[in-house]
């Protein structure tokens, strides 16, 4: 069965994934909107940066974040000089790392969804007296709804599954930065296969259920589209 520290890891994992997803939806929506609409010549550079975590080994990303967030890094140093503490080995640090790590999984579905909406519905809304902000909230977002759902679920699931980044910048502090994927690793290291089974099975089931929900709902949404 699950031990108390396993439950703690589970709670931290869910909290981390929820918070990361929320932040990514807030930051990713304007970014994806801009990337879908902009005709800026160098847009591809930004697209490459957003996609980087897809190909970068998580330990590399984690290493650079550790350097940046640690007491001698630019961010961590700034925090310390302001009387705080460096962000390495803290939950906040984990959230920052996860936001970078899961960014493409949120931004890309949103960008695709906004691109699929196209210009026409927004032009129609403009001729129906809707201001740019009004059009964004009443036309672009509702029409991109399947993309939002996909983005949220992928961002959440991907954050739940991360390992390398968390290990690098979060360490493995039970009750503070120990997430499920690392707890499983610890169990295996300690030959506690029963615990590892429970946690792994739980994650497997959760991931599968979330993907089922994505595909089922996207099919329903796509029927509504003309």
């Amino acid at each position: 069965m699950l031990s108390e520290s396993d439950l703690g890891a589970l709670a931290i994992t869910l909290k981390l994934a929820l918070l990361t997803t929320l932040i990514l939806l807030l930051l990713g929506t304007p970014l994806a909107w801009w990337m879908a609409r902009s005709r800026w010549r160098f847009k591809f550079l930004l697209e490459a940066v957003v996609a980087l975590p897809l190909v970068l080994p998580p330990t590399v990303l984690g290493f650079y974040l550790l350097v940046a967030l640690g007491p001698h890094g630019p961010v961590g140093g700034l925090m310390e000089s302001l009387g705080g503490r460096s962000l390495a080995f803290t939950f906040t640090g984990l959230v920052i790392g996860s936001v970078f790590y899961s960014m493409p999984f949120v931004v890309q579905p949103l960008q695709n969804a906004f691109t699929a909406v196209g210009r026409r519905p927004l032009e129609v809304a403009a001729t129906l007296r809707a201001s740019p902000l009004d059009r964004f909230f009443t036309v672009a977002i509702p029409l991109a709804r399947p993309g939002f759902f996909t983005a949220a679920v992928l961002g959440f699931a991907h954050t739940v599954g991360e390992f390398g980044v968390v290990l690098m910048i979060g360490g493995n502090i039970p009750g503070e930065t120990q997430v499920v994927s690392i707890a499983i690793y610890d169990h295996v290291e300690g030959l506690e296969y029963v615990h590892a089974h429970w946690l792994s099975g739980g994650l497997l089931l959760m991931s599968f259920l979330m993907l089922i929900a994505v595909y089922a709902l996207n099919r329903r949404f796509s029927v509504v589209q003309p």
Binding site: P121, E123, V124, T127, P142
Partner: peptide
Amino acid sequence: GYVFQEASLFAH
């Protein structure tokens, strides 16, 4: 008022 070549109704 503007009528486009395709009706372009809001699908949602």
